[in-house]
Design a protein around this nucleic acid. Structure first.
Length: 422
RNA sequence: GUGCCCUUAGUUCAAUUGGCAGAGCGCCUGACUGUGGCUCAGGAGGUUGCGGGUUCGAGACCCGUAGGGCACCCCA
């Protein structure tokens, strides 16, 4: 066996079919973003570790970031998320940017983790952020952007949902139980409610110093599907979401608190209704992030959606269209060696006429050339042999309809309208 | 970072207690010298992921290692 050089563990390889899927996601993400007036932007793929050390969360920085020294010895990080770059870039031009700031982005991110279903070390992520507005209505708009994307790719409220909660609300409730000082641990406890057995969860709570009475209080909170009504913020969020027509996608979920440290208010999470897959997207309000990276206090809200889970969910519900692998509309075949120059010329004239035309590079048997058209998904084939040349025509074969007709060589517009008219 | 499973032709997978490495699909050639999907016949293609060990003999057993998968952790 020949020497094989493998790919980097967890890195993504996009063969044309997968590239088509990625572009399909990108196209719909852009459409949803632009429908609400968001502008596309991007940050650096390389950053310093310091940018994330401040607020992203210890696990993300210490365990999951790709960090390596550059040739000068400085530590470089492949970006594990986008929000800190956004905060820095906005802070750098905080006086110049018209507000509100509505920005979206789609690009690669890296996290050093064990690859598994719906997760790799290299992934693409759609980020949407709204800065300069501190209101539950702004939070609802972000939920609406994500819901619009779901609608665009055909995922219904019966298939996916947007769960929401509020950090301030949960802060107050947890503090009321006398657990203000253990808030961070308690949030972690809440986050794991559905991931552990009830017995293990109780023990976990006891181990962190939660009394039986407090534990009962937490359970009461988490069982209260109407808890959101106690917060004017969440009530306003739900009202705005209903006005935006996405109420069917929303579901209040007290256990959603999100892992990133910088969230301050509304938090949300996209899920498939069956709970078969991990989170489709995650997001929330971060009002202190900009001041934490040296800027003014500009409030913000945003979410991030990875490309892998949404791909799995779209596939499960059969919403991924059959992509054409070849962009070519017509394949110009070669009848024999003598005809090669004429075929080459014909292909170029078809391009000049506006068609995407591919030229078969060898005068092999027609049989093989047509099989190639079939295999790559090119619908039409142009054939010019001695008979056609003598009559001044081109035989145009429609491989899909299994028909063939002749069109004048001198006037390609007839051929173009025939193909485009189909 | 932890645990379990997997790796044999281009690809998906077989191979009895350790005993001559095989099949489907794909590819190539022909049936069909100017026409694709179907059919039939023939053919090419392997250092069984890599490195050690046990054995008369290893695809199989043992150790290591790389890659892949699933779950945990964390999160998109």
């Amino acid at each position: 066996m020949k020497t094989k050089i493998g790919s980097v563990k967890g890195a993504r390889e996009f063969y044309p079919e997968m590239m088509a899927l990625r572009n399909w996601l990108y196209t719909n993400m852009r459409a949803a973003s632009q429908r609400f007036g968001y502008q596309e932007w991007d940050g650096p793929f390389l950053e310093t570790i310091d940018l994330y050390a401040a607020k992203s969360g210890e696990e993300l920085v210490k365990e999951q970031a790709f960090v390596f020294p550059d040739r000068g010895g400085d530590l470089i990080t492949l970006r594990p998320e986008l929000t800190p770059s956004l905060a820095r870039m906005v802070a750098a031009r905080q006086g110049q940017l018209p507000r509100p700031i509505r920005w979206w982005s789609f690009g690669p991110f890296w996290r050093y983790e064990r690859p598994q279903k719906g997760r790799s070390r290299e992934f693409f992520q759609w980020n949407v952020d709204l800065l300069g507005v501190d209101s539950p209505t702004a939070d609802a708009e972000l939920a609406a952007v994500s819901a619009t994307f779901f609608q665009l790719i055909g995922l219904t409220p019966g298939e996916v949902k947007i769960q929401f909660n509020n950090r301030r609300l949960m802060d107050a409730e947890v503090s009321a139980l006398g657990l203000a000082e253990k808030k961070k641990d308690v949030f972690r406890l809440i986050d794991r409610r559905d991931k552990m057995t009830p017995e293990a969860w109780d023990k976990y709570a006891g181990d962190m110093g939660v009394s039986p009475e407090q534990l009962t209080g937490i359970k009461t909170l988490l069982a209260d599907r109407e808890l959101w009504r106690k917060s004017t913020e969440t009530v306003a969020f739900v009202e705005a979401a209903r006005l935006l027509g996405i109420g069917d996608y929303l579901e209040y979920e007290p256990t959603v608190v999100r892992g990133l440290d910088y969230y301050t208010g509304t938090v949300m999470e996209g899920r498939d209704r069956n709970g078969e897959f991990r989170a489709i997207f995650g997001g929330g309000r971060y009002d202190n992030l900009l001041s934490d990276v040296g800027g003014d206090r500009i409030p913000g809200v945003g979410f991030a959606m990875g490309d892998m889970v949404i791909g799995l969910v779209a596939q499960k519900f059969g919403r991924i269209p059959a992509f054409r692998t070849s962009p070519a509309e017509i394949l110009v075949t070669n009848f024999n060696e003598a005809g090669l120059p004429e075929a080459l010329k014909l292909a170029q004239e078809l391009r000049a006429a506006g068609l995407c035309a591919e030229w078969y590079p060898e005068a092999v048997k027609l049989d093989k050339q047509l099989k190639y058209a079939d295999a790559t998904g090119v619908r039409f084939a142009a054939i010019v042999g001695p008979d056609e040349a003598a009559r001044g025509v081109i035989a145009v074969k429609d491989l899909q309809a299994r028909t063939q007709q002749f069109t004048p060589r001198a006037d390609l517009s007839a051929l173009v309208s025939m193909i485009r008219g189909q």
